[in-house]
Computed example of a mutant assay.
Amino acid sequence: MIRDVLGSIVALAGAAAAVLSPFRDWYDGRLGRHYRIGDLFTGVTGAHPGVFASILLPFLFAAAVTVVGVLLRSRLLVALAGVVVLGFTVLWMVRQGQAAGSLTVTGDGHGLQEGVAGALGGGVLLLLGAVLMSGRRKRRSRPAEPYAAPGSASPDTWPPTREPGPSVQTSPWPEPEADPYVGPAPGPDDRPTS
Rank of each mutant, 00 (worst) to 15 (best):
A117C: 01
R30W: 03
L56N: 03
P164D: 14
V182N: 05
P146D: 12
V10T: 10
Q113S: 08
R95I: 03
L80K: 02
A117S: 09
R24G: 00
R75M: 01
V83T: 10
E163C: 06
L125K: 08
L126E: 01
G109P: 13
V51K: 04
L103T: 07
T45P: 01
S152H: 12
V124P: 13
M93P: 03
L56H: 04
L86Q: 05
S54G: 04
V90A: 11
P180Q: 06
G46H: 14
D189E: 07
A81N: 04
P166D: 02
V70P: 13
M133E: 00
R24P: 00
W158K: 11
A178H: 14
R162E: 15
G111P: 09
G118M: 15
G43P: 00
Y147V: 13
L20M: 08
G151D: 07
L103E: 04
V131G: 02
S102R: 05
S134D: 14
L72Y: 06
V84P: 11
P155N: 11
G50N: 12
L57P: 12
P146V: 15
G87K: 03
R162K: 14
V68P: 02
W26P: 00
E114N: 07
M93L: 15
L60D: 01
A153G: 09
G107T: 13
Q98Y: 06
G87H: 05
L91Y: 00
V168E: 07
P49C: 00
G122W: 05
T66E: 02
